[in-house]
Design a protein around this nucleic acid. Structure first.
Lengths: 197, 197
DNA sequence: TCGGAAAACAAACGTATGTTCGTTTACGAG
DNA sequence: CTCGTAAACGAACATACGTTTGTTTTCCGA
């Protein structure tokens, strides 16, 4: 055996990334062996190296692509929103929750596998995460300046909101009781007005 | 060399648990080798087995002890609170945040290393987590029944609140800008009333 | 049609892993 | 003081790991 009939580089590379997302999400990066990954894809361990440089770079690429997409889509959502601070904030929240519902694996990995990256790679991902946080903090400041939002500590408030809005991807199952619109609405209400009647 | 002068079983066992908390929190359970752990404690790898049964049982014990303490302390906090639903909820929130500030390593591990447990151990920890969630859901239902809380989906609301309140242990540093009381107050306000003025 | 690049294989590299074993020495109850 | 046990050691076990290598077969542009 050698090169397999019908084999295609791009398709295999995609399958590797997809399988890696599943395995890392389920077992963690350190607990995913390249032998497991190769078996999931249906190739031999050594063949992975036709498509990835190292295990470390595979993880970094997955995280980097996710952060790039998240930032771009967020900016698009904000650009499409109305000018009112509250509308912009609603738009951010809706996009964040929907994105996290649809790509829970990528999100989970980007949030919890930072420690598996080496120092240089971790720094790059962290910088992108700070960019993302800065967008929300900016929206909170806009709202405070316009007088529609409470003016407590912006940074910690943003952290708390992001934690709440991101939490959805730890329990969400597409087959669940609530549909996506309901989940978005519930989280928007919680963030804006809390649980007190 | 053999048994070391001044060696003491209980002290070593404690040092192992403490070092394990640090290493698992920093690198993850799968990425922590027993050789690293032994080096951190200052003994040889094989000597660990005078104090633990297996690596897996070490993780389970750490998580189980944490969940037991959390449940017991939560019940104590609720028992000490006044009878009004809102007071009880405030008490829950305050205790949760303080506990998570003070034991961020244990919390982080209990939340994110579930996948490293084998099936039977994971089921036991999950059951305790459900117990904890049930306490909050109960409080939300009390509040709804009394008419002081909004009556949206109780389970998802509880998940969102817990995600927000737990998030604090991913960024908190004791040397930070805000003291603990301020962090508790900020999270209580956010949970109850949101960010809208 | 043909030749180089792409993509797979089988096999092996050195190292690290969790764990076990037999041995040695200090501690502490009688 | 004595003796069983606790608690450490050094060494080794089998297995698993990420990665490299050389080879083989298929694909595809000129």
């Amino acid at each position: 055996m050698a090169r397999i009939t019908g084999s295609n580089g791009e398709r295999t590379a995609l399958a590797i990334r997809h399988a890696a997302l599943r395995l890392i999400h389920r077992h963690g990066f350190a607990a995913m062996s390249l032998r497991d990954l190769a078996a999931e894809v249906g190739i031999r361990p050594g063949s992975l190296y036709n498509h990835i440089a190292t295990k470390q770079s595979l993880l970094f690429d997955l995280m980097h692509e996710h952060m790039t997409t998240l930032l771009a889509e967020t900016d698009a959502a904000l650009a499409a929103a109305g000018p009112a601070p509250l509308d912009r904030l609603r738009s951010f929240i809706a996009h964040h929750v929907l994105y996290h519902l649809e790509r829970k694996r990528e999100v989970y990995i980007a949030n919890f596998e930072l420690r598996a990256l080496d120092a240089a790679n971790a720094a790059r991902i962290l910088a992108m995460r700070h960019d993302y946080e800065a967008r929300l903090i900016g929206l909170l400041e806009e709202g405070a300046a316009a007088g529609v939002l409470a003016t407590a500590d912006m940074r910690v408030t943003a952290y708390a909101m992001l934690a709440m809005l991101t939490g959805v991807c730890t329990w969400y199952k597409p087959s669940g009781r609530l549909d996506r619109a309901a989940i978005v609405a519930l989280h928007t209400d919680l963030a804006l007005d809390g649980i007190r009647r």
